[in-house]
Design a protein around this nucleic acid. Structure first.
Lengths: 239, 239
DNA sequence: TCAAAAGTGTTATCATTACACCCATGG
DNA sequence: CCATGGGTGTAATGATAACACTTTTGA
């Protein structure tokens, strides 16, 4: 069976950058090893062709699950890459997504297609197929920028976490050399009012930390108010 | 002539939201009137099919110039829209861009294709073809969000402008009801150090205003330092 | 009782907000 | 000489940065 069109058409794929946070080992990205040409044997971002009747985000989630077993994740469109020669097979336009998962809940994945799947440290990537290195870089920059003004980082943590874990998350993602000042971090994050105390650590060999969870509703309320304030009062911008 | 493929392929288009600022009349968007089915006669965002050997952004700039005569503008990828039935002709995936132009330098355009082209107030849009209303909304939200932490607004102004013009720009884009406090706006924007005094107004019936231009180099330097500071010292985030 | 990590008090400095006022020009 | 917008002084309040200290647990 084949398909004929009056004008030439590109192929369209989705590719996913899956970030995972390992409490001790830093920020990771999930890669798969290609089993077919081109770039057979090389590591690549999971992804594949979009079906004709499938929404783009659905395609990204499907490829994610097929290739890595990961599901139920935070996902967001990143950018569309369409430089004419980015794929040796012809014109392929790739809509890239990035996903954030909690590593503890997604340990090294069984490979569904006899492909290997593995977490790599974001600072020690192997050579990647196609322009995936470039896509990855764009994704990491977006994550770093976005984590600073939107509460997406929580998707990388377990549902319940300590303030120290949260602080480590920021230090890891942003690649900070010096630690953030603990006192100030805590004051600031608690003053925002989007964290809820939900318990206390057990069985640690030091003073047990309070456990918090992120209250998304509260956050959305505050965001709305913030915009109302802006409309009422003026500007708080930050060029 | 025709083109045959083993698997079905979607068509790929680019669409552009062109924002323009009119000093007296507020924020505008450039629309074209379609001359062919589907949606013949309806207003739509300028756009069209991507050529097989053409980069996406180049395609967007080409369509922009072909359909509206606008060129040499700030342009940035917005989002890729690919819901299966967004176009009655079949599966069409659209990579949307938004552009910012200075209205005075781009007055109502001659129509290159016997199509009409017209600026519309962003608050008084006609019915738009396809899902262009939705695309527009996403674009306007992005502009409003982005203008607050990146200096993209300057692309909407002439190369040289007064602080009052700049303040009006923010008030207009953000749709602020109350005016921003003049004193505070000025202190803040000047303290940033990205504006350069380049002259003085002539021939106005009031005290002539100083003219400023945006110093992009200075801005990029400051951005770099800001990130250095962040790396050194900690966090200034704003969840 | 010690190591390890959690958690708090306080102050100097800087930024934001809110008002009220003066200045320069053309008609 | 006045209408029109351009432009400035200043003080109360709130946020940030920096440092040193106390608390609670298991081993």
């Amino acid at each position: 069976m084949s398909f004929t069109y009056k004008y030439p058409r590109p192929s369209v794929t989705v590719d996913c950058i899956i970030f995972g946070l390992d409490a001790n080992q830093g920020l990771k990205v999930l890669l798969i090893q290609r089993d077919k040409a081109p770039f057979a044997g090389q590591w690549a971002l999971p992804g594949g062709f979009v079906d004709m009747d499938e929404d783009l985000e659905v395609a990204a989630l499907r490829e994610l699950e097929e290739e890595t077993g990961v599901r139920d994740v935070f996902i967001e469109q990143l950018f569309t890459f369409g430089t004419p020669n980015r794929d040796p097979r012809g014109r392929v336009i790739s809509v890239a997504y990035y996903a954030l998962v909690n590593l503890e809940q997604h340990p090294v994945q069984a490979n569904s297609d006899a492909r290997s799947v593995s977490w790599y440290d974001v600072n020690e990537l192997p050579t990647l197929a196609f322009d995936h290195r470039h896509i990855f870089t764009v994704g990491l920059e977006r994550l770093r920028a976005k984590v600073r003004y939107q509460p997406i980082g929580f998707a990388l943590l377990p549902p319940t976490f300590t303030l120290t874990q949260l602080q480590n998350l920021y230090e890891t993602i942003l690649g900070l050399e010096a630690a953030i000042n603990k006192r100030n971090f805590r004051s600031k994050i608690l003053k925002m009012g989007v964290l809820e105390e939900v318990g206390i650590q057990k069985g640690v060999a030091h003073r047990p930390a309070k456990l918090y969870s992120f209250n998304k509703q509260k956050y959305e309320e505050l965001e709305k108010n913030k915009y109302q304030d802006l409309l009422r009062r003026g500007l708080d911008f930050d060029i």
